[in-house]
Amino acid sequence: MKRDISARFTRSLRNNLVLVGIIALIVVTAIIEPKFISSANLTNVMRQLWPLPFIALGMTFVIIGGFIDLSVVGMISLSGVVAASLINPLGQVGAILSGILLGGMMGYLNGFVLTTVGAMIQAEVLFITFGMSSIYTAIALLLTNAETLRIARSTKPYNIFTALGSGTVGMIPVVLIVFLVILVIMHLFYKKTLAGRSISLMGGNKEAAFLTGYNVKRSMRLVYTISGIMSGMGAVSLVSRVTTATATSGIGYETNAILCVVVGGTSLKGGKGSVIRTMLGVLLVVLLGNCMNLLGLSTFMQTVMRGAVLVIAIWLDNRREL
């Protein structure tokens, strides 16, 4: 009986490693550097973490579906550039909507290309989305001629961007409220709708899902479209925060998003995972970055740490399945 309890405890500990990690990180850092839990620091963190949660949210669906999406780099860059440059001709609402819409279209295009050529294994998907990313980045470079677009230069009002970038309601940033609404919608979509559940089915076993009569290709297009829309939203939040858009602003978010998803405990093999877990992963990654900043580690050392965490997380995830 006692052994049973301890076994159950170890199992639940293993399954919730990310929570343990977050708590340990908070406790240890708070002891070494009390500034960590000051409200000024936490507000700062909440303001600086965008667009990562959006990208990680979109990436979660792709990974649960058993695929991977490296094209977020190009999608963020191109969506951001388009949203920033359309403020003048379309007004700010039009600019934001067209950025998000463009993201969705690019995501759909990814899904369309992948299903048309019948890419099924992770390797093929990885390289095709990388190629698509190059294409999007190149288009963004051609549109901007590699110059930085500043939203402050636009002649039309851009107060929604400012609100998203630095506005707060009480202590809470506006963009966080927007994100939480989207998070709840996506969580319900994943848990309660047929389309959401079939993503999980597809990730668990594509052959079985196909033989059961599910339209695997449609699910595949769906997950990539979701990833594209989220990249579009992420791009808007990024542009709002830094008030500029460049054709290379998306670089690095693909590995960071994958890192958050994997650290959260969503399996790269597909089928298992949840939106909430990814958010815990984002929290851990962001807090880790913040704590390394406070402890005075260089950004280069942080890259090393991120890479190490990614490798170890995948390794542990794999061991859990053995």
Partner: peptide
Amino acid sequence: QKTEPFIITLGMGMLLKG
């Protein structure tokens, strides 16, 4: 350890860049 090579070597590349 039989992990999928794609993402893990990608992470390794990131680590080495750091």
